[in-house]
Amino acid sequence: MATSTTAPDADRREPRAGSPAREAPRRPRGPRRSLLPYLLLAPAIVLELAIHVIPMVVGVWMSLLELTQFHIRDWSTAPFVGLENYRATLDLNSAAGKELLHSFWVTLVYSVLSVGFAWLLGISAAVVLQRPFRGRAILRALFLTPYALPVYTAVITWSFLLQRDTGLVNHVLVDQLGLLNDRPFWLIGDNSFWSLLVVSVWRNWPFAFLCLMAGLQNVPGELYEAAAIDGAGFWRRLRSVTLPMLRPVNLVLLLVLFLWTFNDFNTPYVLFGGSAPEQADLISIHIYRSSFKTWDFGSGSAMSVALLLFLLVVSAAYLLITNRRRDDHA
């Protein structure tokens, strides 16, 4: 089934007997009718083609050209060089190749940690806010606020907190608690990676919270009642009721979060002002900087295409593995 590649659960929600909304859509009759869906889709298709599909094809083509600063104003003059850009940028013995590989590892570790913590905070909040109590609505709104903020205001605020001399973090750690003697730099050097991670978790965990909260609303209360009667404690209920019921949500959520953080440009760009330290040199920033510093768009496109291929392989493998495991359980 074609839809199962992006939405593993699409097939689950199709059949639901007795609900009028879920009947199969009526089949159009006559030639005029059968054109209508395409007419309705036309604007969306044109835009998707213009802004996503065509640029992607152009990007692949660009990666095969020697598209340096001399040819950017008129790309028809750029000479065709085949796979030369790929050879040059992905050559792990060259300086550029080593930097790219380093950036790739930084991004991978960053994504795994960021998604892991975001999910952990999201599930904690969703579970403790599951049952109603006074003030729950306020806390829920508060927890969603970091995600609702425009990303640049959130990250700018964090960069203020992390300033060496005027920031809150050093004020608390050094002046108030006395945990450290020297004022560390948080936005350059080794610490910059951890700063980036904290900011990214702060910003992303509410999205996990929102999705998991939506997922928990579909868990019937009787399941918990039954588990409690059977003597199941908190952890047992979490493991045997909550997590299995959230599995469909988690499958999509983890993949989406991973792809978003792996492609993250905004957080490091705003936090470090466009010149990310090497310890926090995420792949999007790396490609951006090397493209606009040298104006070598050919190499930049080659790196982007390689990045896309990597993400496609990872996503496909993830969907294959999770689908197979689901079939085993079924």
Binding site: E48, H52, M56, V58, G59, S284, L308, L311
Partner: peptide, 23 residues
């Protein structure tokens, strides 16, 4: 259509940036 449209959401923005800039 549904699959293509949704999957473009997942692609890195940097992939579209250079070609769109040039276009």
């Amino acid at each position: 259509f549904s699959v293509t449209v949704l999957s473009t959401q997942m692609f890195p923005g940097i992939l579209f940036l250079l070609p769109l800039f040039l276009i």
